[in-house]
Simulated assay, not measured.
Amino acid sequence: MVADEAPTPSPALTAERDAIIDALGPVVDGIAATFGPMCEVVLHDYRQPEKSVVALAGSVTGRTVGGAMSEIGLRIVARGDAAADDLNYVTRTPAGGLVKSSTMVLRDSTGAVFGALCVNVDVTAVGEAHALLGALAGLGRAVTEAPVTTFGNDVDSVVDAILDTHLTGQRRSWAGLDRAGRLDLFRGLDEHGVFAVRRAVEQVGARLGISRASAYSYLSQARAAAAPTPDPDGGPA
């Protein structure tokens, strides 16, 4: 069960979105062929987050068609129609590879976000060459560590990785968190789109050792606390 069910689009919008996905299939192959073996292009259909990868060319993140969205995709889903393109960002795979990426959201004619076209370029060798040339030239090296992003064909592993990252950030176990800390944890997971995935609430509850009902309760309280308070004129505060 999804924590928030999206409204069902009209048959016309569904057909329009299907047509956009179909039209981008050849684009995926064309971009990957242009940039060569260090490039991967992934087409996502966010209407099915557990198997959002509907077309793929190249191999940088190790995913296959039918695979799940990454943490980046979950964040886009969490932002909904307010999501924007994210261009030329750098991330790191769990194996240590350095990847330069661009994620371009797909919208239908109403402006609703329903997918994304992602381009990933493995720049690990470029980073190593840069470090070597800097060392040879005697230049100081200011290291900016790229964040690690979990890419996988199994959405459960992505959810687990996000949960582990948030617990590490809290520097405490679930048992060591007070109520405010527990609500912050659920709020952070929600902001990263974790609960857009079916059964994610149950999965998070099981990982934390709490019941399904308790997990839903914490999520509801976290959302209520984060909701804007209306002003007397009816607008957000």
Rank of each mutant, 00 (worst) to 15 (best):
V2A: 07
D4S: 01
D4F: 04
A6Y: 02
P7E: 07
P7L: 02
P7S: 03
T8M: 05
T14M: 13
R17A: 06
I20P: 08
D22M: 11
G25C: 07
G25A: 08
V28M: 01
D29T: 06
G30H: 04
G30P: 13
F35V: 04
G36E: 03
G36I: 05
E40N: 09
V41F: 02
V41T: 14
D45Y: 13
Y46Q: 15
R47I: 09
P49L: 08
E50Q: 15
V53I: 15
V53K: 11
A57M: 12
T61D: 01
T61S: 05
T64F: 03
V65P: 10
V65C: 07
G67M: 00
I72S: 08
G73Q: 10
A78M: 08
A78P: 09
R79L: 09
A82T: 15
A82N: 14
A83R: 13
D86V: 14
D86Y: 10
L87E: 15
L87Y: 11
N88K: 13
Y89C: 05
R92Q: 14
R92W: 07
T93C: 00
G97W: 04
L98C: 00
V105A: 09
V105H: 13
L106H: 13
R107T: 12
D108T: 15
D108Q: 15
S109W: 04
S109R: 14
S109N: 10
T110V: 11
G111Q: 08
F114M: 02
L117W: 12
C118K: 08
V119E: 08
V123D: 04
V123Q: 12
V123T: 15
V123R: 11
A125M: 08
G127F: 00
A129W: 09
H130Y: 03
A131I: 05
L132E: 10
G134C: 07
L136N: 12
A137Q: 10
G138T: 14
G138N: 09
L139K: 07
A142L: 07
A142P: 11
V143L: 02
A146W: 13
P147Q: 14
V148H: 10
V148K: 14
G152I: 06
G152V: 08
N153Y: 01
D154M: 07
S157H: 10
V159Y: 12
V159K: 05
A161P: 13
I162T: 11
L163Y: 14
L163N: 12
D164R: 15
T165L: 11
T165C: 05
W174M: 01
W174P: 09
L177Q: 05
D178I: 01
L183M: 01
L183W: 02
L185E: 06
G188D: 14
G188Q: 10
G188N: 13
L189A: 02
L189C: 05
H192E: 12
F195Y: 07
F195D: 06
F195H: 05
V197P: 03
R198W: 05
V201S: 02
E202M: 03
A206K: 15
R207Q: 11
A213S: 13
A215D: 04
A215S: 10
Y218K: 09
Q221G: 01
A222M: 03
R223L: 02
A227M: 04
A227S: 06
P232V: 09
D233S: 12
